[in-house]
Simulated assay, not measured.
Amino acid sequence: MTTPLLSVKNLSKTYRGPGGKDVLAVRGVSFDLAPREILGLVGESGSGKSTTGRLVLRLEDATTGEITFNGQRIDTLPQRALRPVRREMQVVFQDPYAALNPRMTVGKFVSEPMEIHKITAGRTETRDRVADLFKQVGLDPSFMDRYPHEFSGGQRQRINIARAISISPKLIVADEPITALDVSIQAQIVNLFSDLQEQLGLAYLFVAHDLAMVRFLCHRVAVMLRGRIVEIAPTESLFQNAQHPYTQALISAIPIPDPARERARRALSYTPDEAALSGELREVSPGHFVLQA
């Protein structure tokens, strides 16, 4: 069996809520991610998907749990010791414009990580590398000296992706990277993620709402509800044989591109109680785990 690139065990995060009451945003999350694998993390808003991604990247510290990356325990590392690890773990955020610096040319924005980590030597080599990155993500290198406001949403996300791959990471956490884009552009960006994964051997933790895109892109899918993973399985196993009622409800809500079938279908609903979320993940078929009391 392949040694996991990323291993998360019993990860939890508690925030202080209104009135001083603790809010458990992520609770007991465990999963492995193999090299070159794409794991989709899906669920409704507030389910803890994005928080899990931020904890993995150490943008926030977990309350409890362990995070092992590339064989090294990183959840206890001090910030200074994290710096070489950060070179191998990058992020693509949901809002491509907010992620850019409006006062910095996009070429400078893409080159910044290379300069910080001393990947290139000198201005000429850096500009050549940025030009290559622009071509790789489908942008004209002549755009390097422009500013973020001069680009469309899809182009801005391509720029963010170029920055993420600029220092040759092993893992990219993509935090709903297509949600803020026009529908016509979303498929292009997902295809770009797929192409880069094949070309560069990347692993992705892909946080998303769009189950159709997740089915197209991901090798496995983990379904989150109220901070817990309720089902995790190979993609086709999950979509063809969903076991948890929440997963079944999510899949039943996927639009069908056939007006007659769309009108006739019946979406399922699921309202869990705390008892339903207090069980353990159990293997129901090879690689397919379901939360059971």
Rank of each mutant, 00 (worst) to 15 (best):
T64F: 07
Q155H: 00
I161V: 14
T3S: 10
E60K: 11
E44W: 04
V56A: 08
V230G: 04
R263H: 15
P257V: 01
L82P: 13
D95T: 03
R86H: 11
Q199N: 12
T124F: 04
T63Y: 09
E283I: 09
T3V: 04
K9W: 08
T105H: 11
K21A: 15
R265M: 08
S252D: 02
F193Q: 09
S285E: 10
A162V: 01
L200S: 14
G53S: 06
T64W: 04
Y15A: 04
G227V: 05
A62D: 13
T124Q: 14
A180W: 08
R103C: 01
L39P: 02
K135P: 00
A131I: 00
R80H: 12
E236T: 03
G53L: 05
Q188M: 07
L205G: 04
G20E: 05
G53P: 06
L77E: 14
D128R: 03
Y204N: 09
E198Q: 05
V230P: 13
F31C: 09
G40W: 00
Q136N: 07
D22A: 13
V221A: 06
F206L: 03
S12I: 05
A162K: 03
V56W: 01
R54E: 11
I254P: 05
R263F: 09
V110Q: 08
T76W: 02
S168N: 14
R220Y: 02
I159D: 02
Q157L: 15
G40T: 07
Q248V: 06
P257T: 02
P272A: 15
Q188T: 14
I172S: 04
Y270P: 10
G201C: 03
P259W: 07
R226E: 15
G154Q: 04
N160G: 15
Q240F: 07
Q90W: 14
F143E: 14
L41K: 02
N191P: 03
A276R: 10
L133R: 01
L5Y: 09
V106S: 00
T76F: 05
F109N: 06
T76H: 09
D128E: 09
Q90I: 14
F151P: 04
R146H: 07
L211T: 10
P35T: 06
R73V: 12
G201Y: 08
G227I: 01
G107H: 03
R282Y: 00
F143Q: 14
